[in-house]
């Protein structure tokens, strides 16, 4: 038994050394913490490596968890760039004081309102909040144009939400900034009173609507296209709420450079690459997000960004409002 165990350990050591990567610390390399999934951004990062000669080591994970990781690591973070799915995770790192201000030559390439007002992170692609609904059961004309419409008793037991999910909590934080705390709490209570169904995350809601388990759900817009990639035609469809409230939110995925980065030039080149036409077209056509730079048009399957009527407010305040949003969601009984 002892001999077999020793042999196993040797085998493990050999295999483990074969699958580790060892390129950190070189001058031409950066480490990216990516809250965006490998499925979506790995091809893009490979393009960057080929074009720039800079090698990129990527840690993929959940945006909020990676933000927490950076906050725990503090100044010892091995990361040069944090590439996140949502402005709340970026804002958390910015509030911790771990991002440097980005160069104006980068910030100028993205419309104001999609980056931090103090320039510590930059929006790269946009994601709209939508209602995903069952076309077999719901006439799109009957869908409300703001999230407030879902407090109506006709939606009793028919709406799915993901209150433990970062994007829902960020949406609630936005509603606080737009409508105030009292209105937000009243809305959350009404949604809870309407026996809304709670799911763990957006992707599961989209699958549940398409499988006929629930009539409608509050999600981000791009999950539906992934579903269509896999099953072909879907019974579920997206409805954009263009009433101009928090329901019309377009939240950017974005990036920032850490103050502890030892290779800020390469980090800068990486973010610049994400804003180039090639990368922006990739976001438009492969991930079905809204491109924010280089005048690239949105995918033709989507309504143009200008028609969405997103609310105007300072996105950098989202992170500091997040704790309050979580309090209110809990107070309304949705947690």
């Amino acid at each position: 038994m002892f001999r077999r165990v020793t042999l196993l350990f040797v085998a493990i050591a050999m295999l483990a050394s074969a699958c580790g990567s060892g390129d950190d610390g070189e001058p031409g390399s950066i480490t990216v913490y990516s809250g965006r999934s490998e499925e979506l951004v790995a091809p893009l990062i490979a393009q960057f490596e080929a074009a720039s000669g800079i090698s990129v080591a990527v840690r993929y994970g959940d945006s909020a968890e990676l933000a927490a990781t950076i906050l725990e690591e503090g100044d010892n973070s091995p990361a040069d760039v944090f590439f996140a799915q949502d402005p709340a995770s970026l804002g958390a790192v910015a509030l911790g004081g771990y991002f440097v201000k980005l160069d104006d030559s980068l910030l100028d390439r993205v419309p104001a309102g999609f980056s931090a007002s103090d320039g510590r992170w930059i929006g790269v692609s946009g994601r709209a909040r939508v209602v995903v609904y069952d076309t077999g059961k719901i006439d799109p004309a009957a869908l409300p144009s703001t999230e407030d419409g879902f407090t109506d008793p006709q939606w009793d037991g028919r709406l799915a939400v993901a209150p433990t999910n970062g994007s829902f909590l960020a949406f609630v934080a936005a509603k606080i900034l737009i409508d105030g705390e009292d209105a937000t709490l009243a809305w959350l209570k009404a949604i809870a009173a309407n026996s809304s169904l709670t799911y763990p995350k957006n992707s599961v809601i989209v699958a549940a609507v398409d499988d006929g388990q629930v009539d409608a759900g509050l999600v981000n817009h791009y999950y539906l296209f992934r579903r269509q990639d896999e099953v072909g035609e879907t019974i579920a469809a997206n409805h954009f709420m263009t009433g101009g409230g928090a329901g019309s939110l377009v939240m950017p995925a974005g990036a920032g450079i850490l103050g502890s980065s030892k290779n800020a030039t390469a980090a800068d080149a990486f973010i610049s690459f994400l804003l180039d036409g090639a990368a922006q077209s990739y976001f438009a056509n492969e991930t079905f997000e809204y491109p924010l730079a280089a005048d690239v048009a949105a995918n033709s399957a989507l309504p143009p960004l200008s028609s969405l009527n997103p609310p105007q407010f300072d996105l950098s305040r989202l992170a500091e409002t997040l704790d309050r949003a979580t309090d209110l969601v809990a107070e309304a009984g949705l947690l």
Partner: peptide, 9 residues
């Protein structure tokens, strides 16, 4: 939800 919705751990 605390990890997703709070900066304070």
């Amino acid at each position: 939800a605390q990890y997703q919705g709070r900066l304070d751990r």
